[in-house]
């Protein structure tokens, strides 16, 4: 009795693992979940259209953005990722091939090896800078980044000692080079990487509530600007530096060019595995991506819903889809 019970329970659990009643194999794509909220929204918009309109089954993998993600896409382990910001991606010039077109205008011509396919613009235009709260800018008289050093003691925390603190670009894989920038520009601040966007924002919110001065790296579109009054410190205009790559051991161009400058205006894009999107069964998906053009205003509204009102991302995207069919219907393949 005992043994038979054991064996039957084991066989049952085996069935659980092995059993299959044969399910239809849906068209399947794997997507990376972006590690900032804006990117998550853009991706959810794309994924929900793929799933609901084009009959796909999209697997979402949590993977940190950065070169690792690009390589995973090139290797075909992830099929696509959304809203890449060119000035953050170090791999784009090496791996993409072809023009980045926005509104019929070629913004950049990539001449890489083509191991990753540029699926088209995501539609979002991004801006990044360092920001301080308006009350601090006014009371301390800070107009540009050049004034930061005078007041560094006001920006210090226990962790940074005498130096000021920058709530820096939170994820190492984004390649912001904050500390390098501060050093090159001679700003005596310490870049504090907090690991996640949410941690950096939480830190900034706490400081704002206490009305303390703080220096924050951030980008637009972001809900933070709607809720809190921030001003940019106007980093020098963006200029590229050819030699500042990993292969060159990060040889910088001094204070003349990146990373001693601010970020370029980012025309963001979606990118994917070339083999996957060359397959005839994925032609519709490829066509959809070439037409997709999400925009800043829509994303900004949804950001407020998701982050400030704490609503579920999927729900918010569904609501937007129901309310604005004219916007996304034009992205659908013919």
């Amino acid at each position: 009795m005992k043994l038979s019970k054991t064996i039957s329970a084991m066989i049952l659990s085996l069935i659980l693992v092995l059993g299959s009643f044969g399910t239809a194999n849906a068209k399947r794509l794997t997507a990376a979940v972006a590690d900032w909220t804006g990117g998550e929204i853009t991706c959810q918009v794309a994924v929900s259209i793929l799933e609901e309109e084009l009959g796909y089954k999209v697997k979402r993998v949590v993977f940190p953005s950065g070169t690792g993600l690009w390589e995973a896409i090139a290797a075909g382990e992830i099929d696509f990722a959304c809203e890449s910001w060119p000035s953050y991606a170090e791999a784009d010039t090496v791996m993409l091939k072809g023009p980045l077109v926005y509104d019929g205008e070629t913004k950049f011509m990539y001449e890489g090896d083509g191991s990753v396919k540029l699926l088209g613009t995501a539609g979002i235009i991004g801006l990044s800078d360092y920001y301080i709260p308006r009350y601090a800018a006014e009371s301390l008289g800070i107009k540009t980044w050049k004034d930061l050093n005078k007041h560094k003691a006001k920006f210090a925390t226990i962790e940074t000692g005498k130096r000021g603190r920058l709530i820096a670009c939170p994820v190492a894989g984004w390649n912001c080079h904050d500390q390098k920038r501060l050093d090159l520009l001679g700003i005596d601040f310490q870049a504090d990487e907090l690991g996640t966007e949410a941690a950096a924002i939480a830190e900034a919110v706490a400081a704002y509530e206490r009305k303390e001065p703080f220096l924050l790296y951030l980008w637009e579109p972001h809900w933070f600007f709607g809720a809190y009054d921030m001003v940019g410190v106007q980093l020098p205009d963006h200029k590229t530096c050819e030699s500042f790559t990993e292969a060159n051991n990060w040889k910088d161009c001094g204070t003349a060019a990146w990373p001693a400058t601010g970020w370029a205006k980012d025309y963001t894009m979606n990118y994917g595995n070339p083999e996957t999107f060359a397959k005839p069964e994925h032609a519709k998906a490829a066509e959809f991506f070439s037409k997709m053009k999400f925009d800043n205003a829509d994303q900004a509204v949804m950001l407020v819903e998701v982050k400030q009102k704490n609503r579920e991302l999927k729900e918010v995207v569904k609501e937007w889809k129901d309310a604005n069919p004219d916007k996304w219907k034009s992205w659908l393949p013919n």
């Binding site: 940190p64 953005s65 070169t67 690792g68 993600l69 994820v171 190492a172 894989g173 990993e246």
Partner: peptide, 9 residues
Amino acid sequence: VFNGLARSD
């Protein structure tokens, strides 16, 4: 380790 993973290094 994290940086290595994110940078594919």
